[in-house]
Amino acid sequence: MKLLKLTPLLLLFFVQAAFAQKWESGKSYFDEEHWTEFIPGDMPLVISIPHGGTLVLPEVPLRDCKGAVTVTDTHTAELGREIQNTFFKKYGKRPYLIISLISRKNVDQNRDLEEGTCGNQLMIKPWHAFHDNIDTALALAVKQFGSTLYIDLHGHGHTNQRLELGYSLNASELPDVSNKTDLKELAQKSTLNNLLTINKKADFKDLMIGDHAFGTLITEAGSPAVPSKQDPFIADGGKYFNGGYNTRTYTSAKYPKVFGWQIESNYKGVRDAAGRPAFAKAFADVIMKYFKENTTIKL
């Protein structure tokens, strides 16, 4: 099976299709089988949740190809909904939300087509449904605001209870952000490179570990994060997720007006029932401040 390449012509098709339909902010839209949920927003923030689905299809073989991971990111879908509702209650705006309802045991929506489906023809359709909705959300947000922030939301089970922010830099590269003076190569590799092109005043080191970096702001708001000013790299030797297929793809040169990162969220105080409301409120406040301090976006 060959991976479908996102050519400029194909991207244009997604953009035209997105603009042709009238979308209602806050309303849920589903694919035919209800395997993907798309809730349009009205602000330059697109959040995808690829691993929160719990629907296991009995007629579909479980993924068992080499390297296949099938663990569910517990309560990430609930966290995404809480974030969207909190934004609307406090700011009168909603981020776009794309949720995979189907289990990772059947399809992995943070892998390319071949690996995500493990070669199962039955899963090609839901894979495309999820990613087509991301394309739609990004196209709509960019059309309205000129550029947009994209976040791929996950959950981790690591011992250290902190957010792991993935900018496509591995754990061995994070110390270089603090220690090196020439950061051009790291910046170009990162998922923030498009933002640096869009906003010429932005500084890569500041975006990663400065006073107004997302990690710094969310740590100050009560949810420790790495990298941040407080915790710039993995000094404790712990595990770290640096971002996967979705983050790399949707902040690449094919999407020049999109920037962002992957969030691997800890459970206690973030994804658990008791922590979700407080985290969602802090997240919304931090994102609004991030837009103001680091972007040229006008809300």
Rank of each mutant, 00 (worst) to 15 (best):
R248Q: 08
F241D: 09
G215I: 08
D203S: 06
P227M: 11
S228W: 05
Y245F: 07
S223R: 13
S190D: 13
F214N: 13
A202K: 12
P232R: 03
Y250K: 01
D236K: 08
P224W: 10
T249H: 01
Y245N: 00
A221G: 03
A253H: 11
Q230T: 01
T219Y: 02
K257P: 09
D211R: 01
N199R: 14
K201Q: 14
K254E: 06
L196R: 14
Y240R: 01
D203Y: 04
F241N: 05
S190F: 14
Q230K: 05
T219P: 02
Y240M: 02
R248M: 10
F241R: 02
T197H: 15
Y240P: 01
V226W: 04
A225Q: 07
P224H: 11
I234Y: 01
P227N: 07
L192I: 13
S252P: 07
V226F: 06
K189E: 12
Y240Q: 02
L196Y: 12
K200E: 15
D206M: 05
D203T: 05
H212L: 00
K257L: 11
D231L: 07
P227D: 06
A202E: 12
N193F: 14
T219W: 03
Y250C: 02
A202H: 11
K254V: 01
G222C: 10
D211Q: 01
G244E: 09
F214P: 07
K189D: 09
F214E: 04
I198A: 13
K229W: 01
Y255D: 07
D203H: 08
V226D: 02
T249S: 01
N194D: 14
Q188N: 10
P224K: 11
I218M: 10
F204N: 04
I218R: 11
K189N: 11
D203Q: 13
N194W: 14
I209R: 06
N193V: 13
T191G: 07
D236M: 06
D231N: 12
I218G: 06
G222I: 10
I234T: 08
L196Q: 07
N246R: 00
G210P: 04
K239T: 02
K254H: 05
N199T: 13
Y240S: 03
S190P: 05
V226A: 11
G222L: 12
G243W: 04
T247S: 12
A221P: 02
G215Y: 10
G243P: 09
P224E: 08
F233G: 03
Y255K: 07
S252V: 06
T191A: 15
K254R: 04
L207R: 12
N246D: 00
K239C: 00
A253M: 09
F214A: 07
G215C: 05
N193Y: 15
N242L: 01
G243T: 10
A235S: 13
P224T: 10
L207Q: 12
S223Y: 08
K257A: 15
K254W: 00
Q188C: 03
E220D: 03
E220N: 04
S252T: 04
D211F: 00
D231G: 00
V226S: 11
G210Y: 05
N194A: 15
T247I: 12
L192T: 08
D203L: 04
A213M: 02
T197W: 10
Y245Q: 00
G215M: 06
